[in-house]
Amino acid sequence: MAASRNPERFAPLLLLAILVLFWELACRGLDISDFILPAPSAIGIALVEYAGPILFNAWRTFWTTMVGFALSIVVGVLLGFVIGSSRFAYAAMYPLLTAFNSVPKAAVVPILVVWFGIGAGPAILTAFLISFFPIMVNIATGLATLEPELEDVLRVLGARRLDVLLKVGLPRSMPYFFASLKVAITLAFVGTTVSEMSASNEGIGQLLLTAGSQSRMPLAFAGLVVIGVMAMAMYELFSWIERHTTAWAHRGQQPS
């Protein structure tokens, strides 16, 4: 049986099934109202019933997240490259960036609204602001942790700094980069959703807010499920790309 050959693959599904079942039984057994905690079956019904609006809003959330995420890849890689390859830039920029990163991004949304108005702008920017930091840090780490012996080997050959960065530094930081993408994409969804809750007429964040204010809890939970599924799907996509591009960094897990 496939499951017995590779139990790890099915473990999350099994755990999910057990949790959902437990949740359903608890709601029914304890007679918990839908207004407090909707049972999985009620959430399922809401998903089907409001499939149209959910899909519409999910698409909006998805593409704004992706645009913000693309921005954070570009900016994160460039900043990481600068910080990781120059000690001076590192010393100058790192404390400021850390301070910036510790600002709660939800607090920035009202400012973004003033600048860009209600709509996709604040959502994209919030997704970007919240997710570029881990990408930048990981690229910088990959570049900065180069073995000194290897650098000596190359410098003796007359390698310029750029040679060392392109031939060794960048390939070497790729595993760090992909690891950071997986963290960053889930953060980007958080950013978009938070922004949509106060600065948008569309998107899953707005759907959550509306459903909550109308006490339609099954719909609110359906929105949460959709966000979770989208983030997980993107996470898996980046894991897959990671496994197929930087296999050399994961050799321990591979059958030889």
Binding site: E147, E149, L150, D152, V153, R155, V156, L157, G158, V168, P171, R172, M174, T246, W248, A249, R251
Partner: peptide
């Protein structure tokens, strides 16, 4: 730095990719 030199160390420092 002298280009007429080759170096090797205790750690092979080969590039894994």
């Amino acid at each position: 730095p002298l280009k007429i030199v080759g170096m090797a160390f205790q750690a092979p420092t080969l590039l894994p990719w």
